[in-house]
C-alpha cells in the first residue's frame, strides 16, 4: 500500500488543468498514463523507482471513489479539492450550491463519531 503515491497522484493531477480534464473524462486511461510517465518523476530530470499503486488504490482512483480513498487514509484536502474540481459544477447546476460536498459527507456518515483512518504515512507503513 502506498498512501504516499495515492497522494502524489491527487497532488499532481489537481494542479494541472490538462491532467484534471483527462481524469474527469477518462479516468482509467489517465491513471494508466500517470503510472507510466508522471508518477515516477522526481523532478524534470530525475526518475524515482520506488513507488507503485496497489490494485485497490488504482481502482479507487479510476472510480473516483473518495469513500475508499478516505478509508485508505488519503489526505482529506487533496481528495476533497480534486473531486470538487471534477463534480461541483455539474452538481451545482443540477441540485444547487454545496450539493456535491453534502453528498460526499453523506457517503462517509458511517465514520461519524469514530476515529478516522489516519492520514499519517508512517502508520500505514507499519501495518
Amino acid at each position: 500500500m502506498s498512501k504516499y503515491y495515492v497522494n502524489k497522484f491527487l497532488f499532481t493531477v489537481d494542479r494541472d488543468p490538462e491532467l484534471l480534464r483527462r481524469y474527469k473524462e477518462d479516468p482509467r486511461s489517465l491513471v494508466a498514463s500517470w503510472e507510466q510517465s508522471i508518477g515516477p518523476k522526481l523532478n524534470d530530470a530525475e526518475i524515482s523507482t520506488i513507488n507503485s499503486l496497489t490494485d485497490a488504490e488504482r481502482e479507487a482512483l479510476v472510480n473516483h471513489d473518495y469513500v475508499a480513498l478516505f478509508e485508505m487514509g488519503a489526505h482529506f484536502f487533496l481528495s476533497l479539492t480534486i473531486f470538487i474540481a471534477i463534480y461541483d459544477e455539474d452538481y451545482m447546476a443540477k441540485s444547487g450550491p454545496l450539493s456535491f460536498q453534502r453528498e460526499f459527507a453523506e457517503k462517509l456518515k458511517h465514520w461519524t463519531g469514530k476515529d478516522y483512518p489516519t492520514i499519517a504515512l508512517w502508520q500505514a507503513a507499519a501495518r
Partner: peptide, 9 residues
C-alpha cells in the same frame, strides 16, 4: 472538517 462526514454542515 474537510473531506469527511462532518463537512459543509
Amino acid at each position: 472538517e474537510l473531506g469527511g462526514p462532518r463537512q459543509f454542515k
